[in-house]
């Protein structure tokens, strides 16, 4: 069995977000980049399947050379090989098309992505990729069990969850639940050493069309000072929520 895990390279969750060039570009100065947290759940689930069934796990990213340390980290966690498609990932349809061109030739049984990238929060690449490949797509996936090519998956729905069944191949966009937080794999020394010798193939991007562009960014307005209320006077809070905030 062949599994593909799509990895997006994103600013660490502790990052303060700033923009440069007249607020048209993300300022990556001083930012640490990491594997997109949602993708980590998928990568760990892929490792578990690999251990149970002997599957091979390929990780892939569409990005510039600066994303290679993130791919190496995925190799250190245990992926067998990595692929980088050399292009700036500025539009979801563009990224999905490049990923599809690669995946089409490789016949993966299972493709796992994250629910969304925590930078642009598009939640767009997975469903587009599945559609280009004409395979089923499960969003917000919080559980996966495989029996041969039969797959049982659980997806989060608004206010609950749904269990689905189907046959591979399919694409799952995962999140916490696919594995538990405590089971997430992190690179160990041995893995880091081994990762240096694993293949990281760079492919030049083919033709793909961009559909959207970002004209500019803005930061939320700073909050006015907080109104402090005495713990013995919660009635004042109720009054303010009623008369000032007008929410009750």
């Amino acid at each position: 069995m062949k599994i593909l895990v799509c990895i997006s390279h994103v600013p660490d969750t502790t990052s303060k977000i700033n923009f440069t060039n007249n607020n048209t570009e993300f300022d990556s100065n001083g930012i640490t980049f990491v594997i997109n947290p949602y993708d980590e759940f998928g990568l760990t689930r892929a490792m578990q399947i690999k251990e149970a069934t002997g599957a091979t796990v390929t990780v892939i990213n569409v990005g510039s050379a600066s994303t290679e340390p993130t791919l190496r980290k995925a190799l250190a966690i245990g992926a067998d090989d990595a692929v980088r498609i050399n292009a700036e990932p500025t539009d979801a349809a563009f990224v999905a098309r490049l990923l599809a061109d690669y995946a089409e030739e490789q016949n993966f049984d299972l493709i796992i992505t994250g629910r969304e990238s925590i930078d642009y929060n598009g939640g767009a690449v997975p469903g587009m990729l599945a559609t280009y490949l004409d395979i089923p797509f499960v969003n917000a996936c919080i559980g996966l069990e495989l029996k041969g090519t039969k797959s049982t998956v659980i997806r989060e729905i608004d206010g609950g969850k749904e269990t689905l069944e189907g046959n591979l191949p399919m694409l799952l966009a995962g999140q916490k639940g696919l594995v538990e937080e405590k089971d997430l794999r992190i690179p160990a020394m041995r893995g880091i050493m081994m990762a240096r010798k694993k293949p990281l193939t760079v492919i030049e991007a083919g033709e793909a069309v961009k559909q959207t562009s970002v004209l500019g960014f803005e930061l939320p307005e700073a909050k006015a000072a907080c109104t402090m209320i005495d713990a013995d006077n919660v009635e004042q809070l109720v009054e303010l929520l009623h008369s000032e905030a007008k929410v009750i």
Binding site: A92, A93, A96, G122, G123, A124, V125, P126, G127, M128, A130, T131, Y132, F137, V138, N139, A140, R155, E156, I157, D158, Q211, T212
Partner: peptide
């Protein structure tokens, strides 16, 4: 969640911007 599960499929099939 359901909207997110259909929107990218529609966009990809129609070649639409999402």
């Amino acid at each position: 969640n359901n909207g997110k599960a259909v929107a990218p499929i529609i966009a990809a099939k129609r070649g639409a911007a999402l």
